[in-house]
Structure formats: structure tokens, C-alpha cells
Amino acid sequence: MSDPLGVTVGPSVYWYVTRSTGSVALMLLTASVALGVLDVGRIATKRVPRFLIDGAHRSTSLLAVVFLAVHIVTAVLDTFVSITLIDAVVPFVGSYRPFWLGLGAVAFDLLVALVLTSIARRFVGHRTWRATHWLAYACWPIALLHTLGTGSDVKSTWMLAISLACLAVVLVAVCARAIVGWPSRLGLRLAALGGAVVFAGGLALWLPQGPLGHDWAERSGTPAQALGSSPSKERVPVPRQDSASVYSKRPA
């Protein structure tokens, strides 16, 4: 989008903020899952009592919501790709990578449901609260897929390292969760372990030809005008000042 005043601006601040808050949110969600498993496993020591782990679990989840709010608002404010507030809450309706952005919306909706039922736990009742809390195990993988599918930094080593480290933490947490209290409800436990294996295996197969492969930006559904002029930087939407030249090189 060209600047109405003719003044060129670099890549908007929003663009940086939305990327960084997104990755921080992924890490917070990971921490929340891990702490939640420690919490439900009643893991505690004299120096680290249970209320500490429980409090950390609650706080990281709330903090994740805050970071996601900033992540969403800045993504909407950034004018380079058109993402509306509606796209951020209603999945799969947007124009920018609709499927992968939609996963983010699903994950956010799930997280909000988790947090709201937790805050209103007294009114919701313990059973309902517990039932909704299983959604956490759906929320996290969906959030990771959104990160990998829309993230502009997935190909950079640091982001890949963060994603894989988060995956490792959650896999360990899920295994630990499946083991705590073994063997009651064995079917559920085996399903959780199976799900984790399938998810990790699926990622290993998909990543190299998906986000790490060629032309992911195009294949994931980035609108043509946002793809930019330099194929080597296909992942990064072109900063604003380049847009004018993009339009001139790519007649609609």
C-alpha cells in the first residue's frame, strides 16, 4: 500500500510486533501445557509447593491470552496483508492464508473458552470445567500448525529451534500425563499417546515439503499482491515502501 503522503516507511512496527508476540505466545502456551501436566500430576517438592506450579500455570495461560491479543491486534493493524478482526475469531473466512490463519482463530477461540471456564469455575462446576480443559490438548497442536503454516520466520533457524523445542516439551508432557495414574481409563491414555505419535510423525513428513519447502507462501494461500517481487524472500511480505514497485512489475 503506498503511503498517501508519499513518505516511505519501512516495514511497519506492527509487522515485527505481531511476529514476536506470536512466537512468545507459542512458548507461553507450551509452558502452560507443561505446567498444567505437572499440576495435575501433583508434582511438588518442599521448595516448589503445588500452589506455585498451579499459580504459574494459571498466570502463563493468562499471559498467553494477553500476548495473543497483541498478536491479533497488530496483525490486523498491519496494512500490508489484509487481516480483519473477524478473521482472527471466525476461522477460515479470511483472504490471507485462510486455512492456516483459521487454525490460529480456532486455537485462540479454544484458549479463550479454556480461560473463561477457568475464571468462572465456581459457576461452571468442576465437572464441566474439567471436561472443557481437555480442549487444551487440542488447542496446542492447532496453535503450532498455525505458527508453522502462517509464520514468516519458520525457515529461520531460531524459529525452527523454538518450534521444535516447544514440540519436544509438549510431547514429554503428554507422555507424562498419559503415565500419571496409569492404568485407569487406559483407552484414553493410549489414544493420547497415539495422537502424539501421529502428530509428531505427520509434522516430520509435512514440514520439509510444507513450510520448509518451495513456494509455501503461494501454496498456503497468500494473496498474489502480497507475495512480493523477490522470490528469494517469498516468506516475508514485502515492506510497504516496495509495494509500489511490486504493482508496477506485476500487472493485475
Binding site: 509447593p49 503445588r50 500452589f51 498451579d54
Partner: peptide
């Protein structure tokens, strides 16, 4: 009936 001996209350 609900109390599950989590002991969190005594910690706090």
C-alpha cells in the same frame, strides 16, 4: 465428597 486431598488449601 468433592475434596480430593490435593492439599493446596493447607499450603496456602
Amino acid at each position: 465428597i468433592k475434596c480430593d486431598a490435593h492439599g493446596m488449601c493447607a499450603e496456602l
